[in-house]
């Protein structure tokens, strides 16, 4: 055994030795939130502390996804209706082409309705 003194153990600090890479974290595992998933419904605006930054209203996101999917489906139907209308008009069936145009307008109104359900949604 050498009688050289043991160098002092460096102080433990979470994160990097470079301060610019560190967020102001006070926990060892800041990614693990105490309230991951559904948050406390009474909390509308999260501040610092456990659960900050997580989704407070998952239903709002689902509703937005559903509106978007429905609108896209309607647009696919509109593309189909437009090809049918062009075909019918080219074959001389002008009345059927006007029915197709009516369908396209109704579909547009449905999409507008989906958008107007909550256009100010953040």
């Amino acid at each position: 055994m050498s009688d050289q003194p043991i160098p002092p153990r460096p102080d433990y600090r979470p994160g990097s030795a470079q301060p610019r890479l560190n967020r102001p974290v006070r926990e060892r595992y800041p990614q693990i939130r105490a309230t991951s998933g559904y948050g406390d419904p009474r909390i509308r605006h999260t501040g610092p502390g456990p659960g900050a930054g997580t989704e407070q209203e998952p239903e709002r996101s689902s509703k937005l996804n559903a509106r978007l999917v429905l609108a896209l489906t309607v647009v696919v139907g509109q593309l189909w209706a437009l090809t049918v209308a062009v075909n019918e008009w080219m074959e001389g069936n002008t009345g059927t082409a006007w029915w197709g145009a009516g369908f396209l307008i109704l579909s547009f109104l449905v999409v507008i309705g989906l958008w107007l359900l909550d256009p100010k949604d953040r």
């Binding site: 509109q78 437009l82 008009w89 145009a101 307008i105």
Partner: peptide, 12 residues
């Protein structure tokens, strides 16, 4: 969707 509706009316 609005563009497609206008296109359909134009075609008819």
């Amino acid at each position: 969707s609005g563009g497609l509706a206008v296109g359909g009316v134009g075609v008819a």
